[in-house]
């Protein structure tokens, strides 16, 4: 999902657990939250840093495809809404970096790993936003898929991560609704507008399905993460839920999901659907998607171009502090 391929540590059997590890697992099984500074297995801490960090990076990089349309939004109202939405995503990134920092890593360290490519962000943000309906599709499908993932993560075992998720979930439904609102306008507009909406759905459908990560049978890291309640539902469970929720919404819009195999399955009370092209997914993750270079390039440039500014403010703060200290001494 926002953290699609998080490497977890090997799963230990109950007999292999040390007394500390067993007590830790029992706390998790009882539904207790783990808080910063409390004892935790090194693997739990490392897996969480990877997952929360990747989630944070996704929020930040995720601003880029939508930011592309802020100056081109069709009305002033749409522009203000999009600006607020993109600003929320910056906030989400910050809540998550703040949660990751309680695990003993600094935000700058995480950013350095994003910039050198050793940490990833969600594959979805490596696709371009080509027409205005794409902004609708992103809100509707991408935020929709993100919500599906984040709602279950509110119950995650690590306190700061869980609290960040609760806060984020409160803000997300505005994101999805504003996207669907754009889709409704476009789908009920002129023939050209409707064609743009269909085109956006056609391009974003499979990348949105990929957001949940590889199929459970190929997802090697899930078992330990689920035992630790770092992950609550499996990739395929969430993907199924997402499809079941989205199909009727597409029908309401009068748009067609680009999948000839999509069919209601009465037995499982859900839709059958085609898997996305997983080779494309692994290519995008490996850095070869349509916009990987542009996205990462934009982040690195922003970081480097901002260095003088960050340094300047810190120098100013240090000088002001020195002046205050001198004044205190003089007053004594």
């Amino acid at each position: 999902m926002y953290a699609q391929l998080v490497k977890s540590e090997g799963m230990k059997s109950a007999a292999e657990l040390s007394p500390e590890e067993r007590a830790f697992q029992e706390r998790i099984d009882r539904g207790e939250k783990i808080e910063p500074k409390e004892w935790m297995p090194e693997g739990y801490r490392k897996t969480l840093i990877r997952q929360v960090g990747q989630h944070a990076h996704s929020e930040i990089v995720g601003q880029l495809p939508e930011g592309n349309w802020i100056t081109r939004a069709p009305t002033l109202e749409r522009k203000a809404i999009l600006l607020a939405k993109v600003q929320d995503e910056a906030g989400h990134g910050l809540y998550l970096y703040c949660a990751a920092e309680t695990l003993g890593v600094s935000r700058d360290q995480l950013l350095a790993k994003l910039h050198d490519g050793s940490m990833k962000y969600s594959s979805i943000f490596n696709y371009p936003t080509l027409n205005w309906a794409d902004i609708g599709a992103v809100g509707w499908l991408v935020d929709g898929a993100a919500i599906m993932n984040q709602v279950q993560l509110q119950k995650t075992s690590y306190g700061p991560y869980s609290r960040a998720m609760i806060r984020i979930c409160k803000e997300e439904s505005f994101h999805q609704r504003q996207g669907y609102d754009i889709m409704m306008k476009m789908a009920q507009g002129t023939a050209e507008q409707k064609a743009m909406a269909q085109d956006a759905l056609d391009r974003f459908w499979y990348p949105a399905l990929m957001m949940f990560g590889p199929s459970d049978k190929d997802s090697v890291h899930s078992a330990q993460s689920m035992a630790w309640k770092i992950k609550i539902n499996t990739n395929d469970e969430l993907r199924q839920k997402f499809v079941d929720q989205t199909v009727p919404q597409a029908e309401y819009l009068g748009l067609k999901i680009p999948d000839p195999n999509l069919k209601w399955n009465e037995e499982k009370k859900g839709y059958d659907f085609s898997e996305p092209d997983w080779s494309e997914f692994f290519e995008v993750i490996a850095g070869n998607g349509p916009c990987n270079k542009e996205r990462l390039g934009a982040r690195v440039k922003a970081w480097e171009d901002g260095a003088w500014f960050r340094d300047g403010l810190l120098a100013h703060a240090e000088k002001a502090e020195a002046r205050r200290a001198a004044a205190r001494v003089a007053a004594e």
Binding site: Q87, G91, L94, Y95, C98, A99, E101, R107, R163, A164, R310, L313, L314, H316, A317, A320, E321
Partner: peptide
């Protein structure tokens, strides 16, 4: 409610407002 980075207290308040 959480934490954030800022060069000084004054900007920490402003950032906290936005975050």
């Amino acid at each position: 409610v959480g934490s954030l980075h800022a060069p000084d207290a004054e900007l920490a308040i402003k950032n906290a407002r936005d975050v």
